[in-house]
């Protein structure tokens, strides 16, 4: 395989490219994306979210209740680890920053999905309790207390019963694994490293 010679950017290109990175993409995104996406009622095409995002009552109904609560977060964390468990060289959702991504996304651009999350996580929880995790306190997550095998079984049931909600949650976990770290996930580019992606200008 022929190795490519190192390339030199021209003066204009160098300064422009460097300036972009020096500005920190997060600064730029904060204004640009948050405003634009919130105004647009964001939906991501791969999950055909048209039936999701607009159906969720957006800002007014959510004012004052913009968090999921500790039990639901525990369920969501456990769900993310069912999607992407840590094993061997595989970092799993938590180490790769997917949970942090979800936190940031749900506090910002994806606040429109909070209704979906509440419904989905409550469904998961109900299924978990039906699977025998009834002794867990109401204030805690029964789903998070399940063994890996049982959590997998319950997740299968959930995916079959609520395929659209499942698709939303699954997609967002994968986003937290593989999207640009500027969005809060993919910690230390762990997702990209897992799939062998060398992002030449983001190292």
């Amino acid at each position: 395989m022929k190795s490519r010679p190192a390339r030199l950017l021209p003066p204009g290109g160098t300064s422009r490219a460097r300036r972009v990175h020096a500005m920190t993409r997060r600064q730029l995104l904060r204004g640009v994306v948050a405003g634009a996406l919130a105004a647009r009622g964001l939906a991501s095409e791969p999950i055909s979210a048209t039936s999701h995002a607009p159906a969720v009552a957006v800002a007014p109904a959510l004012a004052g209740q913009r968090t999921l609560g500790a039990a639901r977060w525990a369920t969501l964390r456990a769900f993310a680890l069912v999607m992407l468990p840590a094993a061997g060289n595989l970092p799993g959702a938590e180490k790769a920053g997917a949970i942090e991504y979800l936190k940031q996304a749900l506090a910002g651009e994806y606040a429109v999905f909070l209704g979906v999350y509440r419904r989905a996580l409550d469904d998961l929880e109900a299924l978990a309790r039906r699977q025998g995790a009834v002794s867990v306190a109401r204030s805690a997550s029964a789903f998070a207390s399940l063994s890996a095998d049982r959590a997998t079984l319950v997740t299968r049931q959930f995916a079959a019963a609520s395929p659209r909600d499942f698709a939303v949650l699954r997609q967002h976990v994968l986003e937290g694994f593989l999207a640009d770290p500027v969005h809060g996930g993919n910690r230390d580019r762990a997702g990209w490293e897992t799939v062998g992606l060398v992002h030449k200008h983001k190292e």
Partner: peptide, 21 residues
Amino acid sequence: DETAEDELLQVIRRSHQPPVE
């Protein structure tokens, strides 16, 4: 500059296009 090489913004959220809704 802000969106270059950003798959989430450009391909998933398609921040350069109006939303389908």
